[in-house]
């Protein structure tokens, strides 16, 4: 089943990169969400997976009686999901503002910071 998860992660990555390479900021944002999921799956799978046994110690025991899922990747991913969501929100609003200000969602025409014919370096002392 780890093999299947690895292939699924690859699919997610390919989709995410496909969107990130497109020039529309909306598609790029979609790509970012998928990229986040892809990365989470990658970490999740690299930490090995077990079926169903959550990393929870049964009541009355000091350590789990059976082997459980690896808790460490889960902890990492849990915070990553929330931060990823916060960052996604920020980027979404940023894109929205950029769209409103520049009236474009094509990155090729978003050249405010690096204009096509920017100022030349100064030739003086």
């Amino acid at each position: 089943m780890e093999v299947a998860l690895a292939i699924l992660a690859g699919l997610f990555f390919a989709t995410a990169i496909w969107f990130l390479l497109s020039r529309g900021i909306i598609r790029m944002l979609l790509g970012l969400v998928v990229l986040g999921n892809a990365t989470h799956l990658l970490i999740f799978t690299a930490g090995r997976v077990t079926r169903e046994v959550a990393p929870i110690v049964p009541v009355g025991l000091q350590v789990p009686a059976l082997a459980t899922a690896n808790p460490l990747p889960q902890a990492l991913i849990l915070t990553a999901i929330v931060i990823g969501f916060a960052m996604f929100t920020f980027l979404l609003v940023l894109a929205y503002r950029a769209y409103r200000t520049l009236d474009a969602d094509d990155t090729a025409s978003m050249r405010l910071a690096e204009p096509e014919d920017g100022p030349r370096p100064p030739l003086s002392y």
């Binding site: 959550a54 929870i56 849990l78 915070t79 929330v82």
Partner: peptide, 12 residues
């Protein structure tokens, strides 16, 4: 702290 749940998911 003892069962699935916690601050992150609760806050969400």
């Amino acid at each position: 702290h003892n069962e699935p749940g916690g601050g992150f998911v609760g806050g969400l």
